[in-house]
Design a protein around this nucleic acid. Structure first.
Lengths: 200, 200
DNA sequence: AAAGTAAGTAATCGATTACTTACTTTAAAG
DNA sequence: CTTTAAAGTAAGTAATCGATTACTTACTTT
């Protein structure tokens, strides 16, 4: 084994991507440090040159996800001409992100399920929280502009939005096919639009 | 330790309920046979007098869930006067079931995430499959009777239904409060009804 | 009362886990 | 070139996992 040495920051990034790739194939809580190292072509101990412990690895993963996902979502929102268009753009952007990184929702949900109060769990929780607040702002302006029904419950609308994506993820989890995600996304959003939109 | 001996079938039932109770508190894949036995007031080895291995325990749990959940769902369907009323009854029945047994959705999702092709995973998959087919039948008759819009995509409607419940579960997972489930359920279903119903 | 059986215990097994230690290699600066 | 700190290896560690063992208890049947 004569692998090239890489600078630490680059190795950390590769580690995060490896964990996400592994999470797409198996239960996130079953991902061992040995499996991560093997996939990277390293020995298990080498990981601890860059991370103090396993939780720090998971924490880096959650930070990676939070940055990338929220950045894309906010970008999609800014480029949309109206609140309803923004919701659709965020929806499709999110689905596209999940299709590219199928391990991400599994890691997120896996972290939220954990018992204690670990750092990665905390990050997962704030990510979902920020995501929900972002959606709520879009919905609020949509109601003011009359594009969305005034009678809708904003909290329920946010919940339905996130739940809808979760349903898509679960469906692809059952079929094991990622193509279904992008294919079904527009059809499902059409239903969601009907639920909240003011026009018929 | 002088615990009374129980007949096997009763012990198996208690084991299942214990696992579900534990799943409400921690990550299902972190539930050890030692933890199950401790909660039951038994030694770890005693479990293997009733189950050949750990997977058999999880399999019994999935069978328990499949029987109880589908039975209630079908009962709620039969008692409903119309397809739309049936969907609402199934929705609230499902939410009530989850509120009573918070560990159930976590176990289900946990099993679906597993890598290989274990028996409990197979059971979880067929349960979701049967559930979806049941919903699809309700939706089909609803479309025929004109209570639901003819233009809706049945697959998308089923996906949205299940995803909505998942969203509720995730929300209570974040807040850690079960009361929210029953409180939010009607509001969220009101949105869902708007998405698929023919009347305004 | 004797024999049989199901259900329990306590101890231990090999395998696997996250993490540590001692040593070696690489790469880049002086 | 030489030096040196970061990066990687190989071989450990203690702890924990599911599962098995030999044995005991409680209850039923003959």
């Amino acid at each position: 084994m004569s692998h090239k040495h890489l600078p630490g920051e680059e190795r950390r990034e590769l580690t995060v991507e490896t964990v996400i790739a592994l999470a797409a194939e198996q239960n996130p809580s079953d991902i061992t440090t040995a499996a991560i190292a093997r996939r990277m072509g390293l020995t298990q101990g080498a990981l601890f040159r860059h991370f103090p412990n396993k939780d720090a690895i998971l924490q880096a993963v959650m930070e990676w996800v939070a940055e990338r996902l929220m950045a894309r979502v906010e970008q999609a929102t800014a480029a949309a001409p109206s609140p309803l268009a923004a919701l659709e753009a965020v929806f499709l952007t999110h689905v596209d992100f999940v299709a590219r990184h199928p391990g991400v929702p599994r890691m997120l949900f896996g972290e939220l399920q954990r018992a204690g109060e670990s750092a990665p769990k905390q990050l997962a929780r704030t990510l979902v929280q920020h995501y929900g607040e972002h959606l709520q702002r879009i919905i609020a302006t949509g109601r003011q502009q009359g594009e969305l029904r005034a009678e809708i419950d904003p909290d329920a609308a946010v919940l339905l939005f996130i739940g809808t994506i979760q349903g898509l993820v679960m469906q692809s989890l059952l079929a094991g096919q990622l193509e279904n995600l992008r294919r079904d996304a527009p059809r499902v959003f059409a239903l969601y639009r009907r639920a909240i939109g003011s026009q018929l």
